[in-house]
Write a protein that binds this DNA or RNA. Structure first.
Length: 733
DNA sequence: ACGCACCCGATTTTT
DNA sequence: TCGGGTGCGT
């Protein structure tokens, strides 16, 4: 036992370079790790947590690691568990939003919410704003919902209250927004709902109003570590500052050159001024890149050095020069797609690559379509990250809205969403009558439904329909704690009869919707199994779902080419990367070419894309491309001129394949799209399993594939064992 | 209350 | 070009 601990402690520092080691060993006080792309940023973070637990004997429950995505949080947890014995206690790796949502669930009453509050996503926000705008009597001119939504979000992120917004309004739009903003906040409160921004703002309010509550959390967390610090916004900055005020052990890791979420409130200031904000802070610069070839890195450096607001850094690598970066110069958008696919096949055959080695990145989702068509035509498997998310599909949102209404009937947006779905003859006129009744009596929309008998103008048959609806919601509301989420959801879907309806409809679209709902029910079932006896699992499920995103589910296990936006690619790496559409108007996007700050963010976005590539980078552009139905010509991106010419290899080879010749669907030389066995896929370090003989344990390491897969598992009772999966009959918990 | 036709608008989207 | 949202007609 002691031997193993020694070995592990040694492992924690082994394989780190000098700066990385210094950063890990610097445990006391604030520290800033400026980590260039591919320089082992997450490595420093995970090793530091492991070091704290193992060397400094800090209970893991005192260490808080915050990230932006669930995927990053999950990976961080797994990597820490590979380094240290997890038995010291719970390990806290979480996203900002889910961490603070968790706090808010506990403290909701103090802020006038109940603990089963609903989290509103962008769609719900839009629906609410729309409702408010439609209800405004003196409205002269309507404004685009999304413009209002993002303005309100902007105001909130700058801690501007509706009163402030009113005072500082300079034009009609500002005034209009300020009015809606006020009502928007009131409505959220009445609906017992919070939007994403509130998940950060309400904790600030909580800490402000209840200093003893803040003191509790300050005492609770001895160490706070943050990944991707360059993307934090102002509320996040304030929260980090107050949470770490007592122990002062705040470690932030980030790269100002990779800050690409300014448009969403991220403040580059946070990382640029960290040394001023935390006076005695220690700064570490990780400038050695382990990911890319020298050529790729030179291109990346030559681009990003054109930015003015950045901290001076020079990435270098011991890796080989590698191939030159290729510039695929095309005349049209279609040619671009063909050429990329041609290159993929070429790389595939010449360099023995897997399809999962390739990523095709683009600035806008709309660009994916042409590339997808070409991939399909050539029988190459691909996965798209982003676009329409599973949980944003209409049918999924409909079911979720029912579940949300059941958990929180005050959630007016959800109730309204489903009151006439499936169609049950309750139309706009009736809704308006109920609405008026509710505002006359100052009651919630749902209470209005239950008191529909008092509304004279509604005809009896309609009343009955409304009563049926509200009774149904109440029925499920009353059993939510006695039956499992899975059972509740399945019964509800059954009662609604939508699966049958979609089946009868029979169209491809309807069948897909039916399947999606089936998939949702499966997910709820899984969730129920995993969280048995955890109180109200339906509410938990809804919270988890509202904080999940597409990239969280992306797993590069399937042998397929990955397509995604430059934004989604941050944090990932691929042997071969294509960046499509390096044109004026697209990169930089025309809207963001006018002011310097926007332009610099576009440049960083390009930089992020370039630095995803390990071995080979292709840049691609088209002289003409169809956009919004028109043919447009932006010309090569200005960023191309920032690359030294001897780093680029111009490739203008014509791809001489016509549509008809390419219409075969499978090429014998291409492997069949194949997914890895689900069992092997799910078994990852950090996962809890049950063994028929040894009981419960946590997976530490996985080696081998297929039938050969073995795993080191640390069991609660019998210690660590190496298990051959094939024979073990493990149950994944 | 529902269906169809037309019109407008159109980044990126960690949560 | 394409999809969603509005408004009119039944």
């Amino acid at each position: 036992m002691i031997d193993r601990q020694k070995r592990e402690a040694h492992n924690i520092l082994r394989g780190l370079n000098t700066v990385q080691k210094q950063a890990v060993e610097c445990t006391d006080g604030p520290s800033l790790v400026l980590a260039g792309a591919g320089s082992g940023k997450t490595r420093v973070l995970t090793h530091k947590v492991a070091y704290l637990i193992d060397r400094k004997k800090i209970p893991s429950s005192r260490i808080l690691s915050l990230t932006f995505t669930n995927k990053a949080a999950r990976e961080m947890r797994e990597r820490i568990l590979q380094l240290v014995n997890p038995c010291y206690g719970e390990l806290w790796c979480s996203t900002f939003h889910s961490f603070f949502a968790r706090i808010l669930r506990m403290e909701a009453e103090k802020l006038g919410y109940t603990q089963n509050f609903t989290i509103y996503d962008t769609d719900d926000q839009a629906a609410l704003i729309k409702k408010i705008q439609n209800g405004m009597t003196m409205t002269i001119e309507q404004c685009p919902i999304n413009a209002i939504r993002s303005r309100i979000s902007h105001l909130k992120n700058h801690l501007k209250l509706p009163e402030h917004a009113k005072e500082s309004a300079v034009d009609y739009f500002d005034e209009h927004v300020a009015m809606i903003y006020q009502e928007y906040q009131d409505n959220l409160k009445a609906a017992n709902a919070m939007d994403f921004d509130d998940l950060l703002l309400k904790p600030i309010e909580l800490f402000h109003l209840f200093p003893e509550s803040l003191a509790y959390y300050q005492k609770r967390w001895h160490y706070v570590l943050v990944d991707e610090y360059q993307d934090t916004n102002h509320p996040q900055y304030l929260l980090l500052k107050s949470l770490s005020e007592k122990h002062r052990n705040l470690t932030v890791v980030g790269d100002d050159d990779q800050s690409i979420y300014r448009w969403r409130g991220a403040s580059l200031r946070n990382i640029l001024e960290f040394e001023k904000d935390f006076k005695d802070c220690k700064t570490f610069r990780l400038e050695q890149n382990y990911r890319s070839t020298k050529n790729i890195l030179h291109v990346a450096n030559s681009i990003v050095m054109h930015n003015s607001s950045r901290m001076e850094k020079q990435l270098w690598t011991k890796n080989d020069d590698g191939e030159l970066v290729s510039l695929l110069w095309n005349s049209t958008g279609e040619e671009e797609s063909s050429r990329i696919i041609y290159k993929i096949k070429d790389e595939f055959q010449r360099n023995k690559r897997n399809f999962s080695d390739f990523a095709i990145l683009y600035r806008t989702n709309a660009q994916s379509r042409a590339i997808e068509d070409e991939l399909r035509l050539n029988g190459i498997a691909y996965v798209i990250v982003g676009g329409i998310r599973f949980y944003e599909r209409k049918e999924i949102k409909d079911i979720l809205a029912y579940l949300r209404a059941v958990v929180n009937p005050l959630d007016e947006i959800s109730v309204r969403r489903v009151i006439n779905f499936p169609a049950r003859g309750i139309g706009n006129v009736t809704l308006k009558k109920i609405e008026d009744f509710c505002s006359q009596h100052s009651i919630s929309f749902f209470e209005g439904l239950t008191r529909v008998a008092e509304i004279d103008s509604i005809a009896e048959p309609t009343m009955q329909k409304i009563r049926n609806f509200s009774d149904m919601i109440l029925k499920y509301n009353s059993v939510q704690h006695t039956i499992s989420a899975a059972e509740l959801a399945a019964t509800l879907v059954e009662e609604l009869g939508i699966l049958v309806k979609y089946k009868e409809e029979g169209s491809e679209e309807a069948l897909e919707r039916r399947d999606n709902i089936g998939e949702l029910l499966t997910q709820i079932r899984q969730f129920s199994n995993e969280n048995e006896g955890n109180g109200n699992s339906l509410a938990h499920f809804l919270e988890e779902v509202s904080l999940i995103t597409d990239i969280d589910n992306w797993d590069n296990d399937s042998n397929a080419v990955t397509l995604m936006t430059l934004h989604s690619a941050k944090g990932l790496e691929f042997p071969v990367v294509f960046i499509a559409g390096i044109e004026e108007g697209l990169l930089p996007l025309s809207r963001n070419s006018n002011n310097l700050e926007d332009l610099e963010e576009e440049r960083r976005l390009f930089y992020v894309g370039i630095t995803r590539a390990r071995e080979k980078l292709y840049l691609s552009l088209a002289e003409r491309r169809i956009r919004y139905g028109d043919s447009s010509f932006g010309g090569p991106s200005r960023f191309l001129h920032e690359i030294k010419h001897d780093l680029l290899e111009l490739d203008r080879t014509q791809v001489s394949v016509s549509r008809s010749q390419r219409s075969y669907s499978y090429d014998d030389n291409l492997p069949v799209y194949e997914k890895k066995a689900p069992a092997a896929k799910k078994l990852k370090p950090g996962i809890i399993v049950r063994h028929p003989r040894f009981g419960k344990g946590v997976v530490r390491r996985v080696e081998g594939t297929g039938k050969e897969t073995k795993a080191d598992i640390l069991f609660e009772d019998v210690g660590e064992k190496k298990i051959v999966i094939k024979y073990a009959n493990l149950e994944i918990l």
